[in-house]
């Protein structure tokens, strides 16, 4: 089948999609966007988290056909997405950075680097999408709020402490910027 949808602000068309393919598979293997990760492919680890019409979902559990006509944001588009949110509109050059290359990082991305929240990095894309969405809803989260919001994202390297640091750091920087 053919699936038409929007990824990181750009219209995409995926051809010859087998009906059993997941959104994750289409992103990774058909659209050249492997940033969303395949740690469990059973909806338990959150490494494949993307925004589907703004809502964080495990893209491994979304059938490709379900995204027809809808908007998807992946980690590759997170920087632009955050920038647009900050500016209140979509920047015209946004589409040039569809793969994430050469883009200024989103605050949550920079905070993950600065706080040492990245080790092997396999959980990082999903955590970034989830944490960014939480800070959008709740700019001033308590530690318990952060843990609750990120409880669907497994990390095996960090013990989560530096991830907590990173989210607190991003929230604090976001607060300073306002």
């Amino acid at each position: 089948m053919r699936v038409n949808f929007t990824v990181n602000g750009r219209p995409q068309e995926a051809d010859d999609v087998w009906e059993g393919e997941s959104l994750l598979y289409v992103l990774r293997e058909r659209l050249g966007l492997p940033g969303s990760k395949n740690a469990c492919e059973q909806g338990e680890c959150g490494s494949c988290t993307v925004r589907l019409d703004g809502v964080p979902v495990c893209s491994c559990l979304v059938a490709a056909g379900q995204v027809e006509g809808r908007e998807v944001v992946t980690v590759e588009g997170l920087a632009d997405y955050a920038k647009e949110r900050a500016c209140g509109h979509r920047s015209p050059e946004g589409q040039d950075s569809q793969t994430g290359e050469g883009t200024e990082l989103a605050p949550i991305q920079q905070a993950f680097i600065d706080a040492g929240a990245v080790q092997c990095g396999f959980c990082t894309p999903g955590l970034l999408v989830a944490a960014d969405e939480m800070l959008e809803r709740n700019p001033n989260p308590s530690d318990a709020d952060i843990r609750e919001a990120l409880s669907g994202n497994l990390c095996r390297c960090t013990g989560y402490e530096k991830i907590m640091d990173a989210v607190r750091l991003a929230a604090a920087r976001q607060g300073e910027a306002v």
């Binding site: 492997p34 590759e76 920087a79 883009t103 680097i113 990095g121």
Partner: peptide
């Protein structure tokens, strides 16, 4: 010094190529 990871930017933008990303 607590220098930052040289692969950090690649890993937070989704560009870092893991073995399952090879194509």
């Amino acid at each position: 010094e607590s220098t930052l990871r040289p692969d950090g930017t690649l890993k937070v933008t989704g560009e870092f190529a893991y073995s399952s990303d090879m194509w």
